[in-house]
Design a binder for these strands. Structure first.
Lengths: 337, 337
DNA sequence: CTGTTAGCGCTTTCAT
DNA sequence: ATGAAAGCGCTAACAG
């Protein structure tokens, strides 16, 4: 393995000083056109590539952003990551990916490792950390943005940006759609108790029903894992305990698809006997039979906006808007026409 | 923003030299137990975290691996990334993610940016680069592994590891299954022409048919984008040009789902009039109606093995096996029972 | 416009 | 068992 070409090599070969090379590299204007061209030619000739890590040591900026997600292979987060990466790339930042595998311990070590890598900022998605741990971890980084999670004392701590979905409005929208179709007995497969998003959607559910004068009994609401299997099992429980239900609102599309399967197994036609609404509009939602009515959320946008906010903060305009709430949109398909 | 705690701070506070702190940090054995404990306490007290970038400058190792994929949000690659990240994490490496967005130019710049970040190695998935560009780009990195792509002169260049799927066997397996069910007129929606995997599957298709004495006319084979829409459109063309087809083998599950939709629109019952087989077994495959028969590939394993190979190479045992070929498995469901 | 001198935070080598 | 000096590749701050 041959030694990496260094700036000194370029300087020597071009017959100039280190600084001149450095200036050319950083597009400083105080270099004569002639010298600049000569240096650039030498750089190309030698195949020189500056070392961001040496540069980072002195500038204190690595050009790297840590992006932490519970599970990259979850289509939800992989879209978020794609959005984040796109924006980062456009501004010449790179993304250091941290996958916590839904594990709190690991989330902590990942955050720590990002510290050692001296990232310029951290984008933390759906953190499962306790509030105090979260604050502590975040405060150790130069900048941070939270996605899908709010921090109670965010304003007081200063630097933390927040990007979330308008889960409450989404939930209201979905329930209102069902109410408009005449449904009154509407169940909710609510997802994991720890989910901030689930809380919001539940709130929307309650708000919309209350406005319509419906008081849902507690048994209409069931927690479940946010997966197809979780949805299938919980839908079965829910429908057997509360056969009066004519509609189901689901934490996300995967849960809704599980519910769809249960209805199939139980011989309950969707949407005629049971209407079903999901959340997220993952690509899958349009492809199942019947196609899923759902609240679309732009996960790509979530990632992109969060990264944007983070970079804005890093590159100066700190007092940019602290919290962004992204809207959702009801996509009406066959499962709840 | 308060200055980062440095090793010098720890040394001063603990009343020892920089070297002692460094030794403790790196678990060198020539430090008295007493001193070690004292230093460790100070480190904890100050919340000191070593800077991998300062360390990297001298050791020439950053503990970062670049992982380059065409599209993180593609379920195929997001699984690969998850596998890779898991292995990397286990060995104390971090993953710098590069998303090329299926763009060759961008693939080149990403690779370049990884160079500047001084990554210890690169894992390049489904590269679309021309052979010479690929060789050049790779040779500029300390170590590299190719996923889903071979390099003609790999052995001669030395350092490049390769991990692929056994696409040929997968294609054969799928076609053999159809032949066993009495199909003879079998079309192939072959995916993008540049895809190495597509080539392999096509080879498997030809081999299996030839062995059965079937000589498929060229019009039975159609290139298409590797997406649902691509599959839908191409299936429509294919079936109208060659109505004699009784089965379709598809480049991947997304294409197969597109084909499924076309059959629905055309009123051709699946599998009775047309049998369909996909490739990959993405989660979606089991959820569509009818459920998709497909060749399962462990994308997680692909990522994990590739990362393993790369790290093995980096950490010494270079002459580890140079090429890994992962098997596929036929999963029989309703679309081609 | 260009070069010189320091030093970023750490490890390596050589002393002690 | 511990420390001092040198330097990794680069840029900031001054000189000229």
């Amino acid at each position: 393995m041959t030694r990496r070409v260094t700036m000194a090599d370029v300087a020597r070969q071009a017959g100039v000083s280190l600084m001149t090379v450095s200036r050319v590299l950083n597009n400083k204007d105080d270099v004569s056109a002639e010298t600049r061209q000569h240096v650039q030619a030498t750089i190309k000739q030698l195949g020189y590539r500056p070392s961001d890590i040496a540069r980072g040591l002195v500038t204190r900026r690595t050009g790297v952003i840590g992006v932490v997600v519970p599970d990259v292979s979850n289509p939800y987060f992989s879209e978020v990551v794609r959005g984040a990466e796109h924006v980062a790339y456009a501004k010449n930042y790179s993304v250091l990916l941290g996958n916590t595998e839904e594990d709190v311990e690991r989330e902590l070590t990942v955050l720590q490792s990002l510290e050692e890598k001296c990232v310029d900022g951290v984008m933390l998605c759906s953190s499962r950390l306790a509030e105090d741990e979260l604050e502590e971890a975040i405060s150790r980084h130069p900048a941070a943005v939270l996605v899908n999670r709010r921090l109670e004392f965010a304003d007081e701590r200063g630097g933390v940006g927040v990007v979330t979905l308008d889960d409450v409005a989404g939930g209201q929208m979905a329930i209102q759609h069902l109410l408009d179709r005449g449904h009154r007995a509407i169940g909710f497969l609510a997802g994991p108790p720890a989910s901030h998003s689930g809380q919001g959607r539940l709130e929307g559910y309650h708000l919309a029903l209350a406005a319509a004068g419906v008081a849902p009994p507690a048994r209409w609401i069931k927690r479940c894992p946010p997966t197809v299997d979780g949805g299938r099992a919980s839908a079965r429980d829910l429908l057997s305990e509360s056969p009066e239900l004519t509609a189901l609102f689901c934490f996300n599309d995967l849960v809704a698809i599980g519910a769809l399967q249960t209805c199939g197994e139980l011989g309950l036609p969707v949407p005629d006997r049971i209407a079903i609404i999901g959340f997220d509009d993952v690509p899958l939602a349009a492809l199942v039979t019947p196609a899923l009515t759902t609240c679309r959320t732009s996960r790509y946008e979530l990632g992109a906006q969060a990264m944007q906010l983070l970079l804005d903060r890093i590159d100066g305009c700190e007092d940019e808007c602290r919290e962004i709430v992204l809207p959702t949109e009801l996509i009406v398909r066959s499962s709840a026409p």
